[in-house]
């Protein structure tokens, strides 16, 4: 493999990794606070792409306006899912909450099939992103430059919110100790809603960029990226935002590189992430950046 082709794959790997990272943050934030895999996260991500589609093609919104609308609506959807499907089960066994999460995910998918239709739709890509840069013999679409930049900006904003604001402090407190945070006068329910909102908005950003890169929209589009992003979150150490980003990049990059170096394994691409997950769970169950938590009786 020549140096140029390697660079080509590298740019694709970085772009895919950033997308996984953005979705993984949503999983990791929710898991950090509720100890719950939000199975519906991938579907929330999918809804964002459809909101963009309908905003631009049906309501003739300018692209920028549609982006804002999509991010806000997706955030609202995330909060709604939490309120309807997870909040009533706050004190139930974990298995019930997980079944509820799976149910929510299926409900969103099937509702999308009914509302949006099963036929694939084309994501509206603005003129700006149609540009392809040629550097030497490699060609890089403009999206490949912008996706990592936007991910980075979103990450900086998020880390600012989590580490510097009062809400962020409350979020950290709730994830450390739910009961103690409540005793300290933190409105836990509100904080959980905010967490879902922020996570879903990041998923929306990821969804919009996913649409630019892979413009074929189907209602089940969120399934695989959602699962892989969750795996990315586990690889990085679930509950850890930087870990989720690291895991996202690792997964995206290795997925692209495996196909690049071993083309005969292309068909096994979707299985690779799961094999990696099981390997991580076996040898370093707390992930790369996770803290080791011992079980107390």
């Amino acid at each position: 493999m020549s140096y140029e082709i390697f660079l080509q794959h590298l740019s694709n790997g970085i772009a895919l990794g950033s997308l996984y990272a953005l979705i993984a943050i949503g999983y990791t934030m929710v898991y950090g606070i509720l100890r719950l895999i939000n199975f519906a996260h991938g579907d929330i991500f999918m809804v964002a792409t459809y909101v963009m589609f309908y905003g631009v093609t049906m309501f003739f919104m300018p692209w920028g306006v549609a982006v804002v609308v999509a991010i806000l609506l997706t955030g609202a959807l995330g909060i709604t899912v939490e309120r309807l499907a997870y909040r009533p089960l706050r004190n139930s066994p974990r298995i019930s909450v997980m079944i509820s999460a799976i149910g929510a995910s299926y409900l969103i998918e099937n509702l999308s099939i009914v509302i949006f239709g099963g036929r694939p739709k084309a994501f509206p890509i603005p003129e700006f992103f149609n540009h392809v840069s040629h550097i030497g013999s490699i060609s890089i679409p403009r999206a490949n430059f912008f996706i990592p930049v936007i991910t980075f900006v979103a990450l900086v904003i998020l880390l600012y919110i989590v580490n510097k604001t009062k809400t962020g402090m409350a979020m950290r407190a709730v994830s450390k100790d739910y009961e103690a945070a409540r005793l300290m006068g933190i409105n836990v329910d509100n904080i959980i809603s905010i967490t879902f909102g922020i996570g879903s908005m990041l998923a929306a950003v990821g969804g919009i960029m996913w649409g630019i890169k892979y413009p074929n929209l189907i209602p089940l589009l969120g399934l695989m990226p959602g699962l892989k992003a969750f795996i990315a979150a586990v690889i990085g150490g679930i509950g850890n935002i930087k870990g989720a980003v690291l895991g996202g990049f690792l997964l995206g990059m290795s997925e692209i590189m495996i196909i690049a170096f071993l083309p005969s394994l292309t068909g096994y691409r979707d299985a690779f992430a799961f094999i990696l997950l099981i390997a991580i769970l076996l040898f370093k169950p707390d992930g790369l950046l996770g803290k080791n938590v011992t079980e107390k009786v």
Partner: peptide, 28 residues
């Protein structure tokens, strides 16, 4: 055998992974 020490949601995701891996292997 290797994953049974995992708990709750980790086990769920790992077994979900098995389902997918089996399907992908059968496709290929």
């Amino acid at each position: 055998a290797p994953i049974l020490r995992l708990k709750d949601d980790y086990l769920a995701i790992a077994t979900l992974g098995f389902g997918e891996i089996i399907r992908v292997v059968f496709t290929n």
